[in-house]
Nucleic acid binder design. Structure first.
Lengths: 326, 326
DNA sequence: GTGAAAGCGCTAACAT
DNA sequence: ATGTTAGCGCTTTCAC
């Protein structure tokens, strides 16, 4: 692979001139510059990123730490980050903690060696660790907020609150909330939003726990939801709701006639399930895009005061919710 | 951030000794080494990856180029790669081409600056380009094979062939194949397997095109599938099959009574759709894992002759296929 | 077994 | 406008 020296020799100039021509182009004769660029092109020269990083202290890369790339939720966030970063000329490093918060410190440490900044999508990481990393490198948090650190999150409390308001308007008085993993920060916000709204509307909110936010877990919890005697079930996420809905219908329960069901995320396309699932649109990809933008701003100006963005999320009403049975 | 110099000073040795202690540990007094390691730990020293890369010519990173991180299919592949690479101590660089083959050269070029090897998940990239990149950097291909380049792929032809055999055993004589995007290499293999099996079993195979492998496209194509007069429909992937199934059932068509439907990938969990979708299990994550392993082997020994691995895939029979109507 | 010193490819003063 | 040179943090001969 050609180096800057090869180009310099071939073009008959010094490496400094090559460097200038390649970069801004300031303080170089236009003609010289043209010539250098041309030579570089014919030699198929590509600046060595590592070397440039060493010299400038800027790697031109951002790192993303997340629990599971294969999970569509995180996949969408990653897509948002990656595309936005690429457009701004940044490379993207990804580390997958396999949903194991214990491995995160190690991964984050290795990541930070190669990047200028970090995007943390780590719902289960302790706040202290978040602070530690954010001191080492410019950091932005996704779907969670910690004081003093840049972050973007969906307002899950507001989303759930609005959702429950909808449900209340339909006349439901006994609502079951099927929660996700208890350590998740998102779960806390969702519960808070629901509790507040339940109080406001005089709703009796019954909480059931599920160990993981999956379709299978939803199926498994369906009977418990029915047994609660509630007329509506709100679930931690769409997969869980999907599972509940599938199972209760198998049991001959009319949805929404006898049980209304709602989820969170809006990850199911129109028509994928019948009736369509009422849910809250979570804007994952957008969070990724915004996070990348925030990180870039911070990298350009470290003195910025911490920014935080909370995205409103909208309730999407479909056929799985209806009036409470008389 | 502590550098090797800081550690050397703190430990009272030279940077050379620190370097030796940190790496193999050969030619260092055991006691000295212990001491150095300890000081390094207390200083929270992390070797600068870029600097090490410059000095050794090895970056310790692999690059992954794929069309869309948010697509569950590629997400699974990426998860496989990432986890395997991480375990081997490699960092993972990802580039997302947004399903735009035109942008791939640029991305691949930038990628290759920072990585020791490349994993290409690029179904639409021309063979010539694949060869170009593979000459620049050790490369392994996922879900596609090009002569002389390492690669791992699912035997889509075999999978589809087995699937069609199943369908033939159920008595179907007129089968419609709903294809995916025409440029996809995977599509070619699938078609080949189907055509061969159709001939073997004396089946009349009718091909319909769909522009994208999505749920919505499946719905849109449903009417055409019905109009073909076939008693069974095999689809390019599960999403497409799901779309077709949903739509035809809305139209009052009995599945599998009047129309049997099958997909490819096995991306839907048991119970997610009713009836369960007959499909072919595609082993995406496994491809990723294998790809990472191949790449590491190649990086260790460039003289290896090109390796290729083709994974058999199994038909998963569920309720969406049944005997042909009399 | 350990240290001194020469780079790896590049940028950024500083000269000219 | 261009060339010279000193590093960036690390590995790796080569002496000692």
């Amino acid at each position: 692979m050609a180096t800057i020296h090869d180009v310099a020799r071939a073009a008959g100039v010094s490496i400094a001139t090559v460097s200038r021509a390649l970069n801004g182009g300031s303080r170089v004769n236009a003609e010289t510059r043209r010539h250098v660029l041309e030579t570089a092109a014919t030699l198929d020269f590509r600046p060595n990123h590592a070397a440039r990083g060493l010299a400038t202290g800027k790697l031109g890369n951002v790192g993303v730490l997340l629990p599971d790339v294969a999970n569509p939720f995180f996949g969408a966030v990653l897509a948002g980050i990656t595309r936005a970063a690429q457009e701004r000329g940044f490379g993207v490093f990804v580390a997958d903690s396999r949903e194991d918060a214990g491995g995160e410190p190690e991964l984050a440490g290795r990541l930070s060696q190669q990047v200028d900044g970090l995007v943390l999508v780590a719902p289960r990481m302790p706040d202290d660790d978040v602070l530690t990393y954010s001191e080492r490198r410019p950091t932005v948090l996704v779907n969670r907020l910690v004081g003093g650190v840049d972050g973007v999150a969906v307002d899950a409390a507001q989303g759930m609150s609005d959702l429950l308001t909808q449900v209340a308007l339909l006349g439901h008085r006994h609502v079951c909330y099927l929660d996700g993993p208890s350590e998740s920060r998102a779960g806390t916000a969702k519960r808070a939003g629901l509790t507040a709204a339940a109080e406001r509307h005089g709703i009796d909110l019954h909480v059931e726990q599920s160990d993981s936010p999956t379709f299978a877990a939803g199926r498994a919890a369906a009977q418990r939801v029915l047994d609660s005697g509630c007329t509506a079930a709100v679930c931690f996420d769409d997969l869980l709701a999907w599972g509940v809905m599938t199972r209760v219908r198998e049991l001959g329960v009319d949805v929404p006639g006898r049980l209304s069901i709602a989820g969170f995320d809006d990850s199911l396309e129109e028509g994928m399930v019948t009736p369509g699932l009422t849910t809250v649109a979570a804007r994952n990809r957008e969070m990724g895009t915004i996070a990348a933008g925030m990180l870039e701003r911070r990298l350009r100006d470290a003195s910025l005061s911490p920014t935080t963005e909370v995205l409103r999320c909208n309730v999407v009403v479909r056929g799985s919710t209806g009036s409470a049975p008389a």
